[in-house]
Design a protein around this nucleic acid. Sequence first.
DNA 1: CTGGACTAGTGGCTGAGCCACTTTGCTGCC
DNA 2: GGCAGCAAAGTGGCTCAGCCACTAGTCCAG
Lengths: 233, 233
Amino acid sequence: MADALGPVSRSKLYAQVVDRIRAHVAESGLRAGDRLPSERDLAERLGVSRASVKQAIVVLEVQGLLDVRHGGGTYLRRDSLDVEPVEELMARRRRLPDVLEAREALETKLAELAARRRTDADLAAIDAALAHMAQEVDAGDPGEEGDRRFHAAVTAAASSSILAEFMRSIADQITESRHESLRQPGRPARSLGQHRRIAEAIRAGDPRAAAAAMRRHVQTVSKVRLLDWNPQD
Amino acid sequence: MADALGPVSRSKLYAQVVDRIRAHVAESGLRAGDRLPSERDLAERLGVSRASVKQAIVVLEVQGLLDVRHGGGTYLRRDSLDVEPVEELMARRRRLPDVLEAREALETKLAELAARRRTDADLAAIDAALAHMAQEVDAGDPGEEGDRRFHAAVTAAASSSILAEFMRSIADQITESRHESLRQPGRPARSLGQHRRIAEAIRAGDPRAAAAAMRRHVQTVSKVRLLDWNPQD
DNA sequence: CTGGACTAGTGGCTGAGCCACTTTGCTGCC
DNA sequence: GGCAGCAAAGTGGCTCAGCCACTAGTCCAG
């Protein structure tokens, strides 16, 4: 149902105008620094109102693809308008193996940084997450909230805004895979055990051990998930 | 100069309205699924035209943060509107140490994947990049184009769309640091040598060696760059 | 050659209007 | 009392016209 609504949402006029501008750039061979037709010109050519053109331009501007100068015209900041925000790419291509690869790259580094930079407050948050997950697992629950908190605490302890943002951009897919992963028999307890080893390495301030433990953890998830994954392509 | 233009660009009305909507969501404690005030309501309250409100809403919609239903209102898709596209975050916070950390996380994994997945065409591209950089270095040039091509070839050989997209989102900072790094005496030749070791491991299909060689390379860049970095905060 | 004035073009924003769609409330019927 | 249908109100989608701020280019005078 939600998927069936996707195409409809995609046909909003401003989105269509974005696509047409993209096509025009590609066909005309325009490059970074080149100027687009004026809003009035585009509106006339596309048979839409200037306000609709403006909406499309605002979208491309906020994506960093256009430079809009008051009274001076609209310019390309890149050689192409084909770049998509990460989240849009994610929503479109739900390739879990890619997500897990990215996750391994990011979380391994985050664990290493957490081991170097953790504060007492960070450790307290990690311990609280472990306790929460243990409580959930003891109660027979999958432990999803504790799992989420643990990874969030490690990410916070790493103090790297870029890596944190990358993690945020694939957060939906991680949430989804967490649900699937932790409902497997025995998986919650095993995951909790792996969390504990990661936490120990972070507490000990051992970046190598933390990275290795996190890599093992994420690779365990990778193996389990790949067996169950049914590609939708 | 370009930095001085940043704040001006930031004060466009639609951007201000975006910020005000964000503030409203935060203050009201609204959650995913909750409904925003109507466009007419927001326009009146903010003292702007409905078209300007609409532009702001379009921005948040295309970022996946709002769900806009024709005739039915505008709804939050997340618990917060504080998420920013990676590129916007990048443009705002040019903290090079963070970039280098992210780069190490991403490129180490990319090298590993390249060693696993490289095709003959990938290896040819890597060799061409090495040859190009060698030519530049022999001619006394810094070798920036060859450097760029080499890292692009490794990224392509890795065949991971998410990691490639993450790399693209910090491409500007990498280009900038490349320029600074490679103009240092002796740096081009040394960098070329490291590239060759990475390429050998990829050609040999040895993921561990490739990852280790790439890590060494990026860490070398990290050390050099940090000595020269003047924080702008 | 330089600077100023003027004109045309461009973007920024407003307000009004109309239509399509959704939601809500009321009434009537079973 | 519950359900269905209809009308009214509210909401979003888009257009159009208008006016102002700004920019770029041209022309003229000193």
